[in-house]
Design a protein around this nucleic acid. Structure first.
Lengths: 190, 190, 190, 190
DNA sequence: TATGAATGAGCGTTCATTCAT
DNA sequence: TATGAATGAACGCTCATTCAT
């Protein structure tokens, strides 16, 4: 039974399936054939959409990091323009509160079986998030909410520093978020 | 020409060679046979010292992360007990100033060809460094030099935040170190 | 943009395109899809005209060998009936002077990228040319122009022997032709 | 049951086996796995000795063409120095009388199943034989046995012309050889 | 007639690992 | 301890061919 789909849908289906399997078993241990099998599709089909397994991997990583970053960005843009520092900080989003549990991404970010993949994904998120946070901090400076001399460095620590919290498993997500916010407040509050 | 070496030496030679090649070409793209060839040694020899390629990899990663962490630790312990906060901060070591350029590790940490491996190594360093820095900060608290309420969180941001700087390529190592120290000072200085 | 063509034209277009690509890259390294792509046509289309890639290949080889042989034949038939041996020989055509340079075949026979294909084509030409030359020599015998005892063998050497010249690259086409004619003269002249 | 052989023997075994299978079924239709299976050996072993299937093919073709050419050469060198033209010609070897029927090469050259391979092999023989025959004819000139003005051209026709006979199947080998010798005599006899 | 997404079998190749020496 | 030929299981990828539209 041959099922034909619109190329864009099929491509996305491949990406989604690959994401799931890479996350479950890791890149190396997920043969292309398994991705195809999981879709009930011929092996070669994936190669109509991606020139190589590695290219598929890059796309997967990039796309999902972007999704996460876009959510954080969206949350940031919801913050009221005329908010006070205190309120501003309360609303500063982190890695950790961009998913709700009904979300397929939640699985990826928390029920990770393959550490390597998770690390790669979270580093990619950091990489993409860094300029966003830099700009955000610059804006805060301009508004007079904050007074940060080295915006880039602070952004680096804010973004990558969250990884330390992310990888801990002795705290609930909620507590991690609170801890991060407190740290942000401590740094920005002068 | 068969060369026999003391097991300890041979084992270390394998680790060193594997480190170099993993760093140059990545784990997946470095066949076990290449490691042997680089040592002028028979293909099967590595299996007398490591049960599998993955075991070798883990050992490599662990050992080198440990070497780096030990250097940082050593530098920390050099700090005079009775130093002032200001001086203390000046001496706080970072990832970045544990190598001198004559060092083989310098190559690994800076002339990286394989990003994935570099990321894995730096994350491993963070993982091992985190408790060290936590303890350090706790000690600083006790001495009255600092007054940090959530030591774990601050340590996370201090340690993992450095990754953001590490991955930047628009700054010299020296500037990166200075930026990190400034950030530490800003956070600790109350 | 779907372009419909008369079946005959389309079939010939496929043959021409396949000839070009087989010659450039070889049979094995020319996927059917590339032939279709080169015609701006859907992947499956060739299969409406040829049952398999191999059938297409056979047709290509056969048709083009035939074209070349027909040209040689035509030149032979131009030779005046009442010519002398000397003039006859001057006019004996070879592989090499059946193309003019504006001809697409010229490309095939001279700017060959794939040796294997070129060899197959030239052997096919020989195969088809052999009986033609045999008949020609028999006729020359009958006319009293020549006196060849073993027509078949002489024809074999005349036809296949040209391959040796064809594959040389230290001579111009013109010189090759002259060398062949001289050899023919030497053999026939008794 | 693991059988270890001297590398040179193993390499030659691969070449011999590949020759047989390429000849029986053709290059394209002989998977590397079949070659290994025919040797009762693991697939990957062939790749210790040849970097690719194509490299193996080239080696096979080259080596066997060389064997045939060497035999012809050896026969030529047996010809007595002070022979007369007539005797010389009688002894001029051709493609066709270099094998005896007990010979494994005999199978290759005569019980050919795959035409393409046979053509490639015979063309390779011609290519390698051409300079040998050229030299031979030059020597005959020097000795005063023959008087050939364009040695290269005559050599080309002598060598490649034999293909025409080789591909005929209406004559016994013996008759083919005689026909060739007669032709040679006709050309050289002045 | 033409499309092009999908099939599916197979192939070349790699490589971690073993083992007789 | 060391060798290196041999194993064998996968895996990435290709491509001739089909078929629903």
């Amino acid at each position: 039974m041959r099922v034909t789909k619109a190329p864009e849908d099929r491509k996305q289906e491949i990406i989604d399936t690959a994401l799931r399997l890479f996350n479950e078993r890791g890149y190396e241990k997920t043969p292309m054939s398994e991705i195809a099998k999981a879709m009930n599709v011929a092996q070669g089909l994936c190669y109509r959409y991606f020139p190589s397994k590695e290219a598929l991997f890059d796309t997967v990583l990039d796309q999902y990091a972007q999704v996460i970053v876009d959510r954080i960005k969206a949350k940031m843009e919801e913050i009221d323009e005329h908010t006070s520092l205190k309120d501003y900080l309360q609303q500063l989003p982190t890695f950790l509160d961009v998913e709700d549990e009904n979300d397929s991404l939640y699985q990826i970010c928390h029920d990770t079986q393959d550490t390597k993949f998770h690390e790669q994904l979270s580093l990619k998120v950091c990489e993409k998030l860094l300029p966003v946070v830099e700009r955000q901090l610059a804006v805060a400076n301009e508004k007079g909410i904050a007074n940060i001399s080295d915006v880039s460095t602070v952004a680096s620590f804010f973004v990558y520093g969250q990884l330390g919290l992310l990888y801990r498993n002795d705290l609930s997500n909620e507590k991690k978020t609170k801890a991060a916010i407190s740290f942000f407040a401590h740094v920005l509050d002068k």
